[in-house]
């Protein structure tokens, strides 16, 4: 229901018939060129080198590793996420620039895996950020990783038609929910230097779920980091 609305809204914005061609072209390029940031939290990271190097060669799919969240399109979380790590994963995710995609590799990101009983491990990654693709397995083989990446590419390519590659918009549109889960884990004074609400406002990504009781809670503790403006 919501997705349809979004599609309609998007179509209403663009009256130029060529605009779709242009959008499709951008989507196509986005699917063909993916820079990934691997946040190597657990053992799953060991599967990435073979996926990148001569055996499987990710670069032929247009995927290459990048170093900082600013440059990256995909955040690969490759294993269990402890509460302490999760803070950094969230900061990293928020510092990435949209369109951004999250891939959870290994079972640990799906449901905590073998750390299910651990008190210090976040169980479901998609409680805290929208995950595009999960690649289950303990650990998944490089073929599975590539398969997952291919799936993501398909989603991105058909973004405009099916809205499958737009999971990142969920984070802005339902920020309150995600923030609530984060606050539940880290306490009510939780905040990152990235001002998601301002970003959502600036780019028109607000949804019904952007504001809520959790964001109100945030507003109370937040020391807003406004950019330093040039002043004469």
């Amino acid at each position: 229901m919501k997705k349809e609305l979004l599609i309609k809204e998007k179509q209403a914005k663009r009256t130029n018939p060529l605009a779709h061609v242009f959008d499709d072209f951008i989507d196509f390029c986005q699917s063909k060129s993916l820079f990934m940031l691997h946040y190597c939290t657990g053992c799953g990271a060991i599967e990435l080198p073979p996926a990148m190097t001569s055996r499987f060669d990710m670069e032929r799919l247009g995927i290459q590793p990048m170093v900082t969240p600013r440059q990256a399109d995909i955040l690969l979380v490759t294993g269990y996420v402890s509460v302490k790590t999760l803070k950094r994963v969230i900061l990293t995710y928020e510092q990435m620039q949209a369109p951004k995609y999250v891939i959870g590799i290994c079972s640990c990101t799906v449901n905590g895996g073998m750390y299910w009983q651990s008190y210090a491990t976040a169980k479901k990654l998609n409680d805290y950020m929208p995950v595009d693709v999960y690649i289950a397995g303990c650990m998944p083989r490089p073929e599975a990783v590539l398969e997952g990446l291919q799936r993501l590419k398909e989603n991105i390519k058909n973004d405009r038609k099916q809205q499958k590659g737009s999971a990142w918009k969920e984070y802005f549109a339902n920020y309150d929910t995600y923030l609530g889960n984060q606050q539940h884990l880290f306490g009510d004074d939780w905040q990152t230097p990235v001002d998601i609400i301002a970003e959502a406002k600036l780019y028109g990504l607000e949804g019904e779920g952007t504001y809520g009781k959790n964001t109100e809670k945030l507003a109370k503790v937040q020391q807003p980091l406004l950019p330093q403006e040039m002043k004469l």
Binding site: K32, S54, D57, D73, Q97
Partner: peptide, 29 residues
């Protein structure tokens, strides 16, 4: 490195993708 390497249009894909990003940050003028 005995890999296949990127497809022919890869440099263009990269540049178009980067310019087509929905959000981006700036630290000032």
């Amino acid at each position: 490195q005995r890999r296949i390497g990127p497809p022919f249009f890869q440099p263009i894909y990269d540049i178009v993708k980067l310019y087509g990003k929905d959000t981006q940050i700036s630290h000032g003028l």
